[in-house]
Every structure is written in structure tokens, then in C-alpha cells.
Amino acid sequence: MTTLTSAEPVTGLEEPRFLGVRHRPAALSVAIRASVPLLLLAAWWYGSASGAIPSDVLAAPSQVVGALGELAATGQLADYLLASAHRAGLGVLLGGGAGLLLGVVAGLSALGEELVDPTMQMKRAVPFLALVPLFISWFGVEESFKVVLIAVAAAGPMYAYTYLGVRGVDRKLVEAARGFGLKGPRLALGVIIPTALPSILMALRVSLSVALTGLIAAEQIGATEGIGYLVTLAQQYYRSDYMVLCVVVYAVLGLVIDLAIRGAEKASMPWRR
């Protein structure tokens, strides 16, 4: 035990360091964020222009811009993006919806956990790409096959994160809500899902990126449009400019998804800063 000796004058006191997130000016933050991608872009451009990177290893930025121009001019870019967005959206809606439901059930009740979790953990261990041949024989090669493949891929992460999020909900909060007479779906929708929302949005983020992977696999088979189909075309016709364009499109989509989820986080969780 220490005792305070009040006789000494209080000197050299330091204000404790601020432990929260320091907010930089927005412009500076954006500039720092953009710096690394821009640096990579500059290295790519310089490497191609100086001849250090041969064009069959990596197409030059000018070629990729040319490819983008061609694709936009023929209207294919918009068609492809729409077709893929439709498939991915539907797949994530179905698979994510199922994953969310199962995650909430497993997270809320012991019986639910016992019934759902072992199967979902097994399902998660199966790479969805291994299911492609099976799914083709069950669903054919048309749209339903593609949507189901993406749904199955998206269900795994959605389930896992939702389950964790629901398990992490403060029991006292649930008790209190029960004290007010909330139960069943109203308890889940009014208390548990909003509290687990950070995890669920994280799950959505992961599900959407998995859906992009699923698109590549699904659109290799029996497709006539889509960004995964574009990857196949670029390979089949040995167009390295289009291959790089696909990479760029995926990168931009990743960025868009990230921004969208950040927006959703801000809008749906005003209490979190």
C-alpha cells in the first residue's frame, strides 16, 4: 500500500495520452490512403514505359485503358457488370440470408447450436469450388447453378460471423430485454441483431468478396456475359490487356464494396463513432 504525501508540491504531471482514434484532416487521410495504390500504379506505368516489364508478362496501363475503352464503347462493360451484379446480389441475398438465419439460431439457443453448428462447420471446411461438378449435375449450367454456387459460398462466412456476433451479445442486455417482455423474433430483431450488427456487416463484407470469387468460377461455365466470363474470354483469346483489366475491375469492385459497407455502418450504427 502506498500513502499519499500531500506535503510535496504537485509538479511534472502529464496529461495521459489520448487513447482514442485520432482524426486526421479528411484531405490528408484521403491522400495517405491513396498514396500506396498510386505508387504501385506509377511503378507499373514506369516499368512498362521503360521496357522493364515486357507486355506479355504484364500489359501496359495504356493497353489496359484501351481495352477498357473498347469494352465501354461496345456497351459490354455495363452489360457484364449488370449480369454479374445480378448473380452476385441474388446469391448473397439467398446464401447470406440463410447464413444469417442459421447464425442467429445457433447463437441464441443451445439446441440451435447443437443442431446447426456441426453441419455448418463441416460445410465451411468444404471448398465451394469442389462442389462445382456436383452442382452442374444437379442444377445444370444455367443461371440457377451460378446463383446457387454463389449462395453456398456466401453462406459460410455470413454464418460464422453472425454466430460469433450473436454469441458476443451482452447477456445482461438480453435479460433486460426479456424483463420488458421481448421474446422470439422481436427479441432477435430488436435487440440481438442490432447489437451484433458490427459482426453482421463484417460478414456481409466477407460474403461479398467471396461472391466475387464465386463469380469467376460460376461464369467460366455456360455464360455469355459477366466479369467472370470476361476473365475466361481474356484467357481463351490470350489477351493480357483484358486479363489486367479484369484485375483492375475486381480491385475497383473491392473498393466499392468497402465504401458501401462503410456507408452502411455509418448509417445503421449512429451510436458508434
Binding site: Q220, I221, G222, A223, T224, Y229, T232, L233, Q235, Q236
Partner: peptide
């Protein structure tokens, strides 16, 4: 005739 998709 039914025209289908492309295969890798």
C-alpha cells in the same frame, strides 16, 4: 435451336 453459354 437454343444458343447457350461459353465453356472454359
Amino acid at each position: 435451336v437454343e444458343w447457350g453459354g461459353t465453356y472454359a
